[in-house]
Design a binder for these strands. Sequence first.
DNA 1: ATATTTCTTGAACAATGTTCATTTCCTGTT
DNA 2: AACAGGAAATGAACATTGTTCAAGAAATAT
Lengths: 213, 213
Amino acid sequence: MALDKEETSEKVLAIAETLLNEGGAANLKARTIAEQAGISVGSVYNLFADLDEVHRAVNMRLLDRLGAAGIAAMADLERQGVTDVQHRILAMAAAYVRFVEAHPGSWPAVLAFNRRRATRPGPDAYDALLDELFDIVAGVLKAGDFGLDDKRRALAARTLWSSVHGIVTSGYVANSDSRQAEEIWHQIELLVGVFVKGLEHGGAFAHAETKPA
Amino acid sequence: MALDKEETSEKVLAIAETLLNEGGAANLKARTIAEQAGISVGSVYNLFADLDEVHRAVNMRLLDRLGAAGIAAMADLERQGVTDVQHRILAMAAAYVRFVEAHPGSWPAVLAFNRRRATRPGPDAYDALLDELFDIVAGVLKAGDFGLDDKRRALAARTLWSSVHGIVTSGYVANSDSRQAEEIWHQIELLVGVFVKGLEHGGAFAHAETKPA
DNA sequence: ATATTTCTTGAACAATGTTCATTTCCTGTT
DNA sequence: AACAGGAAATGAACATTGTTCAAGAAATAT
């Protein structure tokens, strides 16, 4: 006999990831997976309930790797004795950007897929990973000596990282590769620089009383 | 007879928008449209090349309305004599948030669809609208007296608005409605406050490479 | 009134997700 | 070694979709 159930699943996921990376969600077809994995269509459905579950599993692998990359980047800085807040945030953002660039096809699919999930109940592994990233950012912010209590620091971390996320994903709707990469990085540098300076000067407390209806 | 070609197209788009809003891209089916519009399947393909074009047209309508809402919000402030930069940016963000909340199903579809388009060449109407929004933000920033040249001000506008976008879209992957809306708004207030304070104190020029104090 | 052009139709085709009765394969028992 | 029972794999079959196109209907021009 050849492969374990576990090994076959891994093979299927690797193939699925390639397919997603090459052509997005529309390129993930049961028959293509079966053919490339050397199994039958039915066997795919033996391993996974449906294609959605395959997609979900691929996304989780990607997200895990992203989390690992973020943590590794932090560990590197730790080892080098870098404590500057701006440097550390920028390093995390750089890790994020590198990761997205390394998965040009599947990253959009991750985002698109995760939006579909919005109807479902309760937090899941995706939220858990996001919280993990937020916690890392919050930890970095704690090192900088802004006058923030825990709650406000957590809010600042979520705000900052969601902003980075927005810059990266907005940037990637356009096409020209290297010029776009530069633009994204300029925006991130500007954001982080302004954000840190703003926190230093108490901008987090400056409210204008305008709320939406 | 009854309806003009133009009118029928409008009817189809209205139906398509409802379908997208209710069930996302997967809910946009040729036969459903045909049935609800009282025409045949083939006639849909007479009016539009394929379903992608229908989706694109719906998105354009939405984006146009979003642009109009943004401009209207600005005009309101103008009429009220509000010139404060923070107030004005927050008002634009509020208009954006309101718009997204009003289209819970189709807004994700707009974003997802626009990502698929990434392979295509050259800028299109979507980029044009985005530039329009960026220009409005840049205009608001010009009123504030930060020491920014045109180029850097444009960069700041893109950065700020992409960040708002990121906060809004990140916020909407989670589920609890009213608490989530509050969280989004807190993040936006924090971002805008910090951003403005940061610009006032020259944070736009503080680079990590040039080692701050 | 007739001819020509234009539009509309819905049946037909191809591609796809998914199911399930059948077959094949493995494992433990005699 | 032979066999029984269950687990896994199979791929044909079904349902649903996007898309096309030959035939007919309607409108328009001559």
